[in-house]
């Protein structure tokens, strides 16, 4: 039996109209419409578009939440195996709509979703990590090339073919680092690469260096003697026996520990859970990682206003940047609510 696929397009590709009709609300039509006919052809009977959802670009973008909900309700009864949106080419609002709805379908219906966009469509940056976005030209003249690629990728995803490769399947790399066994060992590949580099021949690095984003520095504290300071560490200092079982590497959580009545962190009551450094010094004297003793004295002397009653700790060892970002945003939210003025963050 052929796979069942749902297709999403905007008012323009459904032949309803251009900008003047961009306000139309979601509707559903049986079978393929517009570009869907080309997709069906490319499926060669292996899959079939069972229905087409149409929504105006303005309506979708101005009512994102409601539109998403309405569309999900409309398509639910069709029990499809996959979802295709677009292609949106370089149309920004259409791209955003395709990305948003495709992601929502993927997450709520647990079926694969595919869309298509031009590389500079703002939807690409918004969704490339979560979605398979087939790279298209910047205008609808590229339709004939885009549809077979989108169809082939959809078929592949439905049949659970594991080995996807952006260079073969034509989608924009999602930035997911995936392991595989190469034909040669790393040492052979390294020597090959060096020979090519020495001979000024082209070679492909296996890990292109990332560009790190920057953030604005927070405003300086005006009056230190009134400031509430919080301690945070990635050095893994935790109460003895690690009650939250924070992992020694690749931490999946952080701990929140009350230090209201604690004057300093001693080796009797605290230790490190960090697996990336020699733990002896931190275990002997945890203040070497989280300087509570000094900060308490400064509090007593009136140099600083007060110390936030909790300190936050995780293990920075091999911990994914994404996880530590999540931890820090959660921590930051609590700090903000508790009126913390500044943070001393220590790393090992």
């Amino acid at each position: 039996m052929a796979y069942k696929v749902i297709h999403y397009i905007n008012q323009f590709f459904a032949n309803i109209g251009g900008e003047e009709m961009a306000h139309v609300t979601p509707e559903i039509r049986e079978g393929a419409v517009g570009p869907g006919l080309g997709i069906n052809k490319a499926f060669k009977g292996e899959a079939e578009i069972v229905c087409t959802v149409i929504c105006g670009d303005s309506y979708f973008n101005e009512n994102t939440e409601a539109a998403t909900k309405e569309i999900l309700e409309l398509i639910k009864p069709y029990e499809a195996d996959a979802f295709i949106a677009g292609p949106a080419f370089n149309a920004g609002r259409y791209g955003t709509a395709c990305g948003t709805i495709a992601k929502a379908v993927q997450e709520t219906m647990h079926i694969p979703a595919v869309t298509g966009m031009y590389i500079e469509n703002p939807g690409v940056d918004m969704f490339k990590k979560e979605l398979y976005i087939v790279e298209t030209s910047n205008a609808a003249v590229g339709m004939r090339k885009a549809l077979p690629k989108m169809s082939a990728l959809t078929l592949k995803l439905m049949s659970n073919e594991a080995d996807l490769d952006p260079t073969i399947d034509g989608y924009i790399p999602r930035g997911i680092r995936k392991n595989y066994f190469a034909e040669l060992t790393g040492a052979e590949r390294a020597v090959d690469m060096l020979v090519k580099k020495l001979n000024d021949e082209s070679y492909t690095t296996e890990y292109p260096m990332p560009v790190f984003d920057r953030i604005e520095p927070g405003k300086a504290i005006k009056d230190l003697s009134k400031a509430k300071i919080a301690l945070v560490t990635s050095g893994g200092i935790v109460p003895k026996d690690n009650p939250d079982r924070i992992e020694s590497s690749s931490a999946s959580k952080y701990g929140t520990y009350n230090i209201e009545s604690v004057l300093n962190l001693t080796g009797d009551n605290y230790e490190t859970a960090h697996g990336g450094y020699d733990p002896v010094y931190a275990n002997d004297e945890p203040d070497r990682v989280v300087p509570l003793d000094v900060l308490r004295d400064l509090e007593k002397e009136g140099v600083i206003g007060s110390i936030h009653p909790y300190f936050y700790s995780t293990v920075g060892n091999g911990t994914a940047v994404k996880s530590s970002k999540e931890f820090s945003l959660e921590i930051a939210e609590k700090l903000r609510q508790d009126g913390v003025d500044a943070v001393i963050l220590t790393s090992t």
């Binding site: 995936k178 260096m209 790190f212 994914a320």
Partner: peptide, 27 residues
């Protein structure tokens, strides 16, 4: 690399544009 269980994170703790020929032993 330490790119996270989902492979979506930064792989190395440091980076530089001069490092343009990298061989990796896996995530």
């Amino acid at each position: 690399e330490y790119a996270g269980r989902d492979g979506l994170s930064q792989s190395l703790a440091d980076a530089d544009v001069k490092a343009d020929a990298v061989v990796t032993g896996g995530n």
